[in-house]
C-alpha cells in the first residue's frame, strides 16, 4: 500500500463524517414520518403486537416492502410470501450498493457489511450527493442511516400505538410527504445536461411498464432504471469511439 493509499483508507470512516451524516439526515426525517406512521398503523390493523411491529421495522427497515408484506398477511404468518415480497420489492437496493462502490471499497468486515445492512433509499441519495461533492466517508452513510432508523422505529411505534386516534383516509395529502422527499433528492443527484436523456428514458420506461403493460412493483423501477442507465451508457460509449 502506498502512503497516499494508506492516508486515503484512514479517512474512510470517521466520527466527523458520521456527524455530518446525522445532520444531513435530520433535515429529511420529516418526509419519512408519515410513511412510518402508515406502516405502524397497517401492522396494528393486521393484528401484530407492538413488539412484533418494532421487531419487523428494526430488522427489515424497508417501508415499501413492509407495507406490501403486511397487505398479504395471514394467520398463521405467511413466511414464504413475506420473504419473497421483500426479495422482489427490495431488489432495487442491489444496484445502490454497487453505485456506492467508491465509498464501500475502502471498508472491511463489520464496517462494510454493517454499512450495507443499514442501506436505505434516502441515506443512499444523501451519500450519492456526498460522492458528487468529492467526499467518500462511509461514516456519513452510517450516520444518516442511523438517524433514519431511529426515526423509523419511533414513527412505526407511534403509528401502532395511536392507530385508532390518527386514522387518516388513505389518499390524504400528508402521505405525499414521502414522494416529495424523494423528489427533493433528485436535485443534488443531478449532474447536468448529460443526465437528461437517461432520466427521461427511465421515467418513460417505468410509465410504460406500469401504465401500459400493467406490471406491478418492482418491474417498473427495474425496467426504468436499467433501461435509462443502458441508454446513457450507449450514448457515452458511442461518443467516446
Amino acid at each position: 500500500m502506498t502512503q497516499a493509499e494508506e492516508k486515503d483508507r484512514r479517512g474512510s470512516f470517521t466520527a466527523a463524517g458520521m456527524k455530518r451524516g446525522v445532520r444531513a439526515a435530520l433535515a429529511l426525517t420529516l418526509g419519512l414520518m408519515p410513511f412510518g406512521l402508515v406502516v405502524g398503523m397497517t401492522a396494528d390493523a393486521q393484528g401484530l403486537s407492538l413488539l412484533e411491529t418494532l421487531l419487523m421495522s428494526g430488522l427489515v427497515f424497508a417501508g415499501t416492502s413492509q407495507v406490501m408484506a403486511l397487505g398479504l398477511w395471514t394467520e398463521p404468518a405467511p413466511i414464504l410470501a413475506a420473504a419473497l415480497t421483500c426479495l422482489v420489492i427490495n431488489l432495487r437496493m442491489a444496484p445502490m450498493g454497487v453505485a456506492l462502490g467508491p465509498v464501500l471499497d475502502r471498508l472491511h468486515g463489520i464496517r462494510l457489511w454493517g454499512s450495507l445492512a443499514l442501506l436505505v433509499d434516502n441515506a443512499f441519495a444523501l451519500m450519492v450527493a456526498e460522492m458528487r461533492a468529492g467526499r467518500r466517508d462511509a461514516g456519513f452513510l452510517v450516520g444518516a442511516s442511523m438517524v433514519m432508523w431511529v426515526n423509523w422505529m419511533l414513527m412505526c411505534g407511534t403509528g401502532h400505538v395511536f392507530a385508532s386516534a390518527i386514522r387518516l383516509p388513505p389518499g390524504h395529502p400528508v402521505f405525499f410527504a414521502s414522494l416529495a422527499a424523494l423528489m427533493s433528492v433528485l436535485v443534488p443527484i443531478w449532474r447536468g445536461a448529460s443526465d437528461l436523456l437517461p432520466w427521461v428514458a427511465a421515467g418513460m420506461l417505468a410509465l410504460l411498464a406500469h401504465g401500459v403493460l400493467g406490471l406491478g412493483a418492482p418491474w417498473p423501477v427495474l425496467l426504468g432504471a436499467l433501461g435509462g442507465g443502458a441508454i446513457g451508457a450507449a450514448r457515452d460509449l458511442r461518443a467516446a469511439r
Partner: peptide, 14 residues
C-alpha cells in the same frame, strides 16, 4: 454511473 438518478426517476414517475 447513471443508475442512482434513474432508480429514483423510475420509482417516482409511476
Amino acid at each position: 454511473a447513471y443508475l442512482p438518478g434513474c432508480i429514483f426517476v423510475a420509482f417516482l414517475a409511476p
